[in-house]
Design a binder for these strands. Structure first.
Lengths: 132, 132
DNA sequence: AATCTACTTTATAACCATTCTAAATAAGTG
DNA sequence: CACTTATTTAGAATGGTTATAAAGTAGATT
């Protein structure tokens, strides 16, 4: 399994649950956005197999900390994650409540002119809200 | 009271509670960011007066819907609001967990090249995360 | 000014995503 | 295999937010 090494390198034991979650998250042609609830459903449907909710939370947070997932800053009652960890942005369709990727190349270069003493920029995230 | 007209125009009855919340939110030299909890505390301290939590939620949402407040898209367990309703952006200091305004003029013009059929852009919000 | 109606406030309960807990299980190591 | 430490798990706890339904208030009408 290709994920065993990946996990070991990050200091995460390659458990059955983590490997299964890797499959669901990363064995896809396209990247995607999801909530924890989405993921739990996807696991059940795709693997016909239940992983404890707490484990899904733990794993997603562990993966995020290791940089395998990104959290998407958006106001919602649920937290959205993205398997696309490249430097990119999002459209948010307010009506459909759906996120759409916006590649870096689709947004001109962003130049932050203001500086904050003693702080450096970790990330720049653009959210473009869409209406009809 | 200057807020009576403002509220009436929006179709909101100028109740005692709403007027008091207006004072706390808008009778300030500078705009500011707050959570509902922040606002409840501010009301108690500033007006020495308790407004029911449900009313604070209702009022903030009503004001947001009318465009007197903006919600700040950020991943947090609490929702952040902004009394600065001008077109602007935010720094988020990850260590201090504090928001800092980033005026539109401090961010170069943002040009979204990708178009989504049948949708138009309602807003563009930039979140710049800061680390030490 | 009394009356009426729709809106608003309120305390409290309900909701629900997320986190915590502590016991059982599994992984890695010698 | 034995041992240590990490992980999984079900269920409880937490906490921000929303729903409920009863009491109160604003504004219009008479």
């Amino acid at each position: 399994m290709k994920y065993i090494e990946k996990l070991r390198k990050s200091g995460l034991r390659p458990t059955k649950q983590r490997l299964q979650i890797c499959e669901v998250l990363f064995d896809t042609e396209k990247t995607f956005h999801f909530t924890i609830n989405d993921l739990v459903n996807k696991i059940q449907k795709q693997l016909n197999n239940k992983i404890s909710l707490a484990t899904v939370y733990n794993t997603v947070h562990a993966f995020e900390k290791k940089g395998y997932l990104k959290q998407i800053p958006i106001n919602s009652n649920q937290t959205y994650f993205d398997t696309n960890i490249s430097d990119h942005h999002h459209f948010y369709d307010l009506k459909e409540e759906k996120l759409i990727d916006l590649e870096n190349s689709d947004v001109g270069p962003i130049n932050i002119l203001k500086k904050i003493e003693g702080k450096k920029i970790k990330s720049i995230e653009v959210l473009v809200k869409l209406e009809d």
